[in-house]
């Protein structure tokens, strides 16, 4: 009985804590987004005197020739394409690295680690992209995001694959599966939980990325959602109401995604954590 009251107590505390940590900032965003410019300049946690959320949303969407709409399209393409490529490539690299021992492995591992450790330099990267005629194009930026995310994903996959028993591969090989079929039909489905983890982590990273689109994808028609924040915030004056409306609008898609895929995400994260 005593134990039960204690668990109810800790549960309540956890709920209160998460309300404070998540809902309070969100309320602040919502309230500021509903204010007029003058009122929002005070940045107070207060109920708006004039409710202007709708006007703000319209203004934010119309700013700079409907830049937000373009940005949403760009960000979606960028996130989906780069996360897909990342998952595909890093799963294959992780599989080969884990399963096939060769004298190249130490060198490859070193390169993977180097990708995590060495910070990317902007100007030489642009030179490479210019050489490939990919600079300032969405495919170029996709390749950059894939490259920067690959190391982390490879490490995740390799650690997870170590936990898949080799007997499975052997059984499949005996049944006549070649290496491609072995990977895509036997191993890949087993990686589901770590795939979900990688998708969640990298999708958030790519969607939220600011620096790379800023430098590698110049031009208003190429904007991503994070860059639209700078329409309303500048060095000397900031329109807080529109800035927060913009934040609200670009927070919604990931939020909706989370609500829909909540079960898979949580399952993927926890199973990844235990086995990895």
């Amino acid at each position: 009985m005593k134990r039960r009251t204690r668990s109810i107590l800790t549960g309540t505390l956890a709920i209160i804590a998460s309300v404070i940590v998540f809902l309070v900032p969100f309320t602040f965003i919502l309230m500021t987004a509903s204010k007029t410019r003058q009122e929002s300049a005070a940045l107070q946690f207060s109920w708006p005197e004039q409710f202007a959320l709708f006007e703000n949303i319209v203004e934010v969407i119309q700013t700079r020739d409907f830049m937000l709409i373009t940005a949403f399209i760009n960000s979606t393409v960028l996130t989906v394409a780069s996360v897909t490529l990342m998952v595909l490539f890093s799963a294959m690299v992780g599989w080969v690295l884990q399963r096939r021992q060769s004298r190249w492995n130490p060198a490859i591992n070193l390169m993977v680690l180097a990708g995590l450790i060495i910070p990317p330099a902007v100007v030489p990267t642009i030179w490479v992209l210019q050489g490939l005629e990919l600079f300032g194009t969405l495919p170029g930026l996709i390749l950059i995001e894939v490259t920067f995310g690959l190391s982390f994903s490879v490490l995740m996959f390799r650690a997870f694959i170590a936990a898949i028993p080799r007997e499975l591969d052997e059984a499949a090989t005996i049944d006549g599966a070649g290496p491609i079929r072995l990977f895509f039909q036997v191993a890949f489905p087993l990686l589901r939980s770590v795939i979900v983890t990688v998708i969640v982590v990298q999708a958030v990273f790519v969607f939220n990325d600011f620096q790379n689109p800023l430098y590698f994808l110049p031009g208003d028609e190429n904007a991503t959602v994070q860059l639209t924040l700078y329409n309303f915030q500048s060095q000397f004056d900031t329109q807080w109401n529109l800035l927060f409306t913009n934040i609200l609008l670009i927070t919604i898609p990931p939020l909706v995604m989370y609500i829909f895929f909540q079960r898979q995400i949580v399952a993927g994260m926890t199973s990844g954590a235990v086995k990895g």
């Binding site: 210019q130 600079f135 500048s234």
Partner: peptide, 18 residues
Amino acid sequence: PGGEEGDNLIKTRLATGE
């Protein structure tokens, strides 16, 4: 963007001919 971020951006784009 303005400020230091903008300074870096301008220098980068000038240096790369973009």
